[in-house]
């Protein structure tokens, strides 16, 4: 049993550090990639590396970032949330519809919408845990239900403008930093703490690694899973509120692109689609990479088609790189 020899505390510490590096290697790769891309873009565009541009870049990234935060929780738990597009869209649409563009109703509309979103997340979670419906199917179905439901309510009409407060939140700044980005930062800290420093986070990773083992170890798997779907729905809702403020109006299909980008951000950030690994820092890197790539487009005068290809290539590259260096545990 050669691997089990007695080791000095020094050797143990070294081995601990190595273990930490291996475990987080995908995140390092993601950030390296983000920095490289940012560097390349700056080379081609002189105004890219300015604070002004960075601000708008971060604002663009924060919508993906916030949706991807929720997606991170769900993916770590071993599932995936495909109801993100219409969750976002329905909250955005209903916000404008119920406030008619005035701030006065915000005080009750926002809490109601968030509660509703939590409810949808709850249903998603219950479908997955109690009824055993696979996450892909459950959230896919929910997406369709939300789409149909919202379209029925609005009959696809023109949406009123977003209320001023919301618009100010999404476009304004505080101490020179866009408020939306600050909100994102706060959410990021909360997400990071929740995942790495709370019992809930530990249980989430356990559930995503092996639900049976988690259950036998006393984890209430159902509750943990349902919570992750509620978090995801809330994140999509928040993103929807901010987005409608940023764009000024709600429109059909405004959430569609976030399905791909939220999942892509989490994957590029190093999480495994099977669950049990990854953290929000990686997702942030993923969101940044995707956003930088999008802005690279007009700078390099590329076809929008190229962007799609590059997105796919980036996902493949990061996943292949991550799989190449991980050894050790055999399933």
């Amino acid at each position: 049993m050669s691997a089990e020899a007695q080791s000095s505390p020094e050797a143990v510490r070294r081995s601990d550090r190595r273990e930490w590096l291996t475990r987080n290697q995908s995140i390092f790769i993601a950030y390296a990639l983000a920095i490289i891309l940012w560097g390349i873009t700056s080379l081609f565009a002189s105004d890219f590396a300015t604070w002004d541009h960075t601000k708008s870049l971060l604002t663009e990234a924060c919508f993906v970032g916030i949706v991807a935060a929720g997606q991170t929780f769900v993916i770590i738990s071993g599932g995936v949330d495909l109801s993100v597009p219409w969750m976002l869209n329905s909250v955005a649409t209903l916000l404008t519809l119920w406030t008619h563009g005035h701030d006065s109703s915000l005080v009750w509309v926002v809490p109601v919408l968030l509660a509703g979103a939590a409810g949808v997340g709850l249903i998603n979670g219950i479908g997955v845990t109690v009824f055993g419906v696979q996450p892909i199917i459950m959230t896919l179905g929910m997406n369709g239900v939300l789409e149909g439901g919202v379209l029925l309510i609005t009959s696809g009409g023109q949406s009123p403008n977003a209320p001023h407060t919301i618009a100010h939140l999404s476009t304004g700044t505080f101490a020179g930093i866009p408020i939306a980005v600050l909100i994102w930062a706060v959410l990021a800290i909360v997400a990071w703490l929740a995942l790495s420093r709370t019992p809930f986070g530990r249980k989430l990773y356990a559930v995503g690694t092996n639900g049976t083992v988690a259950r036998l170890s006393g984890v209430r798997v159902g509750r943990v899973t349902i919570t992750s779907y509620v978090i995801s729905a809330l994140c999509s809702a928040i993103a929807g509120i901010l987005l409608v403020g940023y764009v000024g109006q709600a429109y059909l299909g405004m959430g569609d692109s976030y399905l791909f980008t939220s999942v892509a951000a989490v994957i590029i950030g190093g999480a495994s689609i099977l669950g049990g690994t990854g953290n929000y820092f990686g997702t942030i890197a993923g969101a940044l990479i995707l956003t930088v790539l999008t802005s690279l487009l007009p700078i390099l005068n590329l076809n929008p088609a190229a962007l799609q290809v590059v997105y796919g290539a980036v996902i493949l590259v990061t996943v292949i790189l991550a799989s190449v260096r991980i050894g050790g545990v055999r399933d």
Partner: peptide
Amino acid sequence: SQGSMERPAGTLS
């Protein structure tokens, strides 16, 4: 056995 407690459990005998 002594050694890192951070090792994945799957690497043990």
